[in-house]
Design a protein around this nucleic acid. Structure first.
Length: 157
DNA sequence: GCCAACGTTGGC
DNA sequence: GCCAACGTTGGC
């Protein structure tokens, strides 16, 4: 089982939207490093910290989990889709999706400044300057520390 | 709204 | 293959 941090701008798709939808396909990843994770490494049952970027405050808003492993992103083939990418061909797809399911929302967002000053999170990617990757691996230890900061226990699903 | 950091593109 | 220019991300 692996742990991840997925970034989303809440003005585009927030954890409240995921709570309402129960599950969703994680659309719009157009970065090769993030694509490699989605295609190769993210597995069903993995737990994901749902991170609100470009938010006030930015931080971890809750938890979701992988309910469907990497599959071809057909929105990249559709010229009418805002995620269309002419470089992605049906015989050589460039982009992949996973589906995530809602698990829980924290009572309060664990804000980025708090992550930055917490012992044990020094190596966590999101705490480092210029860490733009939208799909980030997280260790179990880091995941557990964030849960503790949130005062949350993992909800059984 | 600003701007630093980063990834991608394209000329050479 | 180098690297300048450009576009995007995302904290502040």
């Amino acid at each position: 089982m692996n742990y991840w941090l997925f970034k989303s701008e809440p003005s585009v798709y927030s954890i409240d939207d995921l709570k309402r939808d129960k599950s969703t396909s994680w659309e719009g990843v157009r970065n090769y490093q993030a694509r490699n994770f989605l295609r190769d490494t993210v597995k069903k049952g993995d737990l994901v910290l749902f991170y609100h970027s470009n938010a006030e405050p930015p931080g971890v808003a809750g938890v979701c989990k992988i309910v469907k492993e990497g599959y071809i992103d057909h929105t990249a083939f559709d010229p009418k889709s805002k995620y269309f990418d002419e470089k992605s061909k049906k015989d050589n797809p460039a982009w992949y999706l996973v589906d995530v399911g809602y698990v829980q929302t924290f009572e309060e967002v664990v804000p980025l400044p708090k992550l930055k000053v917490t012992n044990g999170l020094e190596e966590m990617m999101v705490t480092k300057r210029g860490a733009r990757l939208s799909i980030q691996p997280v260790t179990k230890k880091e995941f557990d520390i964030v849960m503790k900061l949130a005062g949350a226990k993992l909800v059984a699903t």
